[in-house]
Write a protein that binds this DNA or RNA. Structure first.
Lengths: 343, 343
DNA sequence: CTGTTAGCGCATTCAT
DNA sequence: ATGAATGCGCTAACAG
């Protein structure tokens, strides 16, 4: 009574006095099956609401038509945009997506990867947790022939497929913008030093300053572990400098939110006493007073889409070495600040 | 050479000169297998890095140990909190989660459900798109014995499992708060009339006014389709009333963001000329100047967790009719407004 | 305590 | 153009 309803190939075959193979082929428009038979089969299949049982197909084909995606945090607009892009690509390829949030916790990330492995996903897309230091899992999946593609937060190794945003372009635009507004005391609140993303920001920062003939002052480079507390500590330090910076570039929009909050509490006026530019360009800025001057767009959708594209190529074993390091430029987006100075 | 590495039960059995069933049982600590044998099997399995092939297990057990979740939009904090809760529950039950975003598009929602059906998920959790009117899919899944649980945005039918937040409690608190601050011209910017959630808000609104002996003025109830344009139109109307409301309750924090933006552009000062309370309580308020007075928390995590709990009960066929309509109270959260009036 | 056997639903190879 | 036979990896009923 339970599953009695769900029709199988065999049932269709019996009802039509055909063999399962004929039915199977008819359903797939195999050329060697007669038109009449094909029609009869399809008709009954439609009537019975037949659906092939994916479980059997997965088993037979040694595939699951499923990819796994590990992200730090869905609540960040950056990643929800990314996952939407991946989902769309997956749908287009007739794949489904299983998901895990690492919440920037290395152990949790590993558990998710474990579960993907057990699930026998056909491929994996990862944007690393900010605290991941152990990359042994890469070898594990290599051995199992499960392709892995990284994006955004990627390991600092050459032997992987990875897609990143070139943070230098946006960073240099940011500095040029600040300089053209007359700033020369420009600070950077950077992320954890272990991150490739932080390294790249710092390189761009220094390059940008140099190209504007500004001395690089190491005291103007701060680091945060990206927690609210860490962000505030960095800002406290920054504000207590005798020669306080007038312009600040933050690792991300979240860092900027924390920074601006503290700055306001200290009685300083944003976009008057101190100016901000940050990374990520999240959509909410347009609804906020006293936003940063600009934010650097990293095109999460594009990055994720490319990651999915490469992954599906790898799954299809088109191992056309189309370069396993893709870099997209980032771009500075000026936020409408017409209301900012009117306060 | 490809899959040659991946060990199976059979291989372990051959190497150990045992039968596959013995190996299978040993790996599961079946009591009828001798300790020595169990040890030998486990040792070799560990050496070979054996992992059972879920595809075969799915097939054999007629299950996928996978649940599907359909949500409107991952980028809303409400839903990303919800999905985290579901994920945690799923992990605890050894299940994986496949995900789809409807983006409030009925057709897209249906496609996602289709794909879940093909994937033979063991159960489904849905928070409906704001534009869904056709609920035929409920019958389809019923027929296939795939349990479905709704939360937050649920169908207005009795014969389904659903978990919602009781919007009335929060709504009444909101009105009481406004009244105690001296407001009596209180407006509601509500969502689409077709939504159960809108209906409930309106009921609470009217109840709250009545209990405070305030006449219900129908002109103070507005509707928006929740698009930015719709939100703004509602606010335009509201502001153009001769007897302009001094206090506004909005359908959600997103509506409030749009509303406050427009209000500012009109030169009005928030928390002085006009006051807001809204639904959802998203985390970013604490980082924003000129936030609403309060926001009504709907506990997405709790709702989602409960939905998952019920779903897993249904999957296990513990069809203990533990009530298929669960309601959690909502609660007004006062936002720290110390900085608000100091501008 | 351990082995043998059968079968889940489907795709496929080999016959006819 | 169609059918029969096989096997994917695993579990479980049955047999010893």
């Amino acid at each position: 009574m339970k599953q009695g309803q769900i029709p199988t190939l065999k049932q269709i075959a019996k009802r039509l006095k055909l063999s399962t193979s004929t039915v199977s082929r008819a359903l797939k428009d195999h050329p060697s099956i007669g038109l009449v038979t094909t029609m009869r089969v399809k008709k009954l299949a439609a009537e019975l609401n037949y659906e092939p049982d994916n479980r059997a197909i997965f088993f037979k084909q040694q595939k699951t038509f499923t990819i796994g995606v590990v992200l730090p945090n869905l609540s960040e607009a950056f990643f929800s945009t990314a996952i939407s892009a991946i989902e769309d690509m997956a749908t287009a390829h007739n794949y489904t997506v299983i998901l895990g949030q690492s919440l920037d916790d290395e152990a949790r990330e590993l558990k998710i990867l474990e579960s993907f492995k057990k699930h026998r996903v056909d491929g994996i897309i990862v944007s690393l947790s900010k605290n991941t230091n152990n990359f042994d899992f890469i070898e594990t999946f290599q051995k199992m022939n499960i392709p892995v593609v990284f994006f955004d937060c990627v390991p600092d190794r050459e032997d992987v497929y990875r897609i990143v945003s070139d943070l230098e372009t946006g960073m240099i635009e940011a500095i040029n913008t600040f300089v053209s507004c007359g700033h020369n005391r420009i600070a950077l609140i950077n992320g954890p030093e272990s991150l490739l993303a932080s390294k790249q920001r710092e390189e761009g920062f220094i390059k940008g300053l140099k190209s504007n003939d500004i001395n690089v002052n190491r005291d103007y480079i701060f680091h945060t572990n990206l927690s609210e507390k860490g962000n505030q500590e960095a800002v406290e330090e920054l504000l207590s400098l005798v020669d306080r910076p007038s312009a600040v570039i933050c690792f991300s929009d979240y860092v900027t939110l924390d920074a601006m909050k503290l700055v306001r509490e200290k009685g300083l006026v944003i976009n008057q006493d101190i100016f901000f530019i940050s990374f990520a360009n999240f959509p909410i800025w347009n609804h906020i007073e006293n936003k940063p001057m600009a934010s650097i767009e990293q095109f999460p959708g594009k990055q994720a889409e490319k990651a999915a594209e490469i992954l599906f190529d790898l799954i299809k074993e088109d191992e056309t070495n189309k370069g396993n390091h893709i870099i997209y430029p980032s771009r500075l987006i000026h936020l409408d600040s017409s209301k900012q100075t009117s306060l």
